[in-house]
Design a protein around this nucleic acid. Structure first.
Lengths: 193, 193
DNA sequence: ATCAGCACTTGACAAATGACAAGAAATTAC
DNA sequence: GTAATTTCTTGTCATTTGTCAAGTGCTGAT
């Protein structure tokens, strides 16, 4: 099976030898999911690390009014991993759902552990992945507390314009922390400038 | 020097042998800072991992209007680490400042790397620290987008009441993502219930 | 002891966003 | 192809939060 996208992802983050990457990625297995399918449901324990090769996904929670709050939007290629559930083997708080037809590669916790403890390069890679994810989340948090909705919308539009062709505005609205009617008004306001 | 608090912190997170913890913590060095001192300034490259043994700290950024936005409040005992700056050796976006007299333990990137690659238990510990920090940040982000200011205030009051005795309301307000006048009104409203 | 500055509160008003409802447009199911 | 469902927009009004300015009281420097 073709693992070029996954292999390239390793090389893009970090100088690492081709053979080592192939050694790491050989345990990853391909699979596909249709649009609007649950990859990992709330309260389940995550047993895999997923690499999203093609497509769009999101994670979401239900608030006290049973409304879905989108906590993250994933654009391929990227890793999709519920860190807390996967590494501490405890139930997820979030549900992970495809937003388009998606193709994935997955590997087990056992394989991750073997590589983590045996391959110094994989250790460095996984730590770097944590650092990058943490930093992205921190940036988003800062944006949420210090910018208004219109700025957050414009930033997303600039950084990830393709999301708007692939993800419904309702989902994008909750990701931006506003209602769908507010987002609609913001878009109207932006378009006439 | 007494490293009981640091050693206990390791044991509290994770089942790990006493000798291994002592081996890890032996490279940590004590130091102290007065209230309102900069531990790590914006645009500097972090060279140390810090463990806050006693006291309160915060990290903050300046927004476009040159107002300080508190991005995190640290309550001892805990690790204080700018992951991106420390592990990627790039300039920080945030400034780290003490909010009370503080005592710290610090160790260098070289020591962290040695332990990370030589001690399986330390690898597991550092990954767990990442997982916990990521998860906390994610919870806070969800709270920010889905709860209103009053709820966020009440949650902080419940989870960390001591912060209110040690950190000014102005700083807590910006941490909660509201202005200090709003927080003042929220407190007034809460107190008369 | 005094003065300057800071933290906190409060008032009046403005701006941003939410809640709800209705209708148009797009998508999906059969 | 048609009906049902969902998405998106828009209107009205309420609520939340911000902005600005003033006033009080505390604290720290000299």
């Amino acid at each position: 099976m073709d693992k070029r996208i996954l292999n390239n992802y390793f090389h893009s983050l970090f100088p690492i030898e081709k053979e080592i990457v192939q050694n790491i990625t050989k345990t990853f297995k391909h699979f596909q999911l249709d649009k609007n399918t649950i990859l990992l449901a709330k309260n389940k324990i995550s047993t895999k690390t997923y690499f999203l090769e093609h497509g769009y996904m999101r994670s979401y929670i239900l608030n006290e009014d049973n409304e879905e709050i989108t906590t993250n939007i994933y654009t391929a290629p990227c890793f999709v991993n519920d860190f807390l559930s996967f590494f501490k083997q405890q139930p997820t708080k979030e549900t992970y759902q495809t937003l388009s037809d998606c193709s994935f590669l997955e590997t087990s916790l056992e394989n991750v552990q073997t590589n983590f403890h045996n391959l110094p390069e994989f250790r460095e890679f996984s730590r770097l992945l944590f650092v990058i994810n943490y930093s992205k989340l921190n940036d988003r948090m800062i944006e949420m507390v210090s910018q208004k909705a219109k700025t957050r919308y414009l930033n997303l539009l600039k950084q990830n314009p393709h999301v708007f062709q692939n993800v419904s505005l309702k989902i994008i609205a909750s990701y931006l922390g506003v209602t769908d009617s507010s987002l609609s008004r913001i878009r109207k306001n932006v378009s006439k400038m």
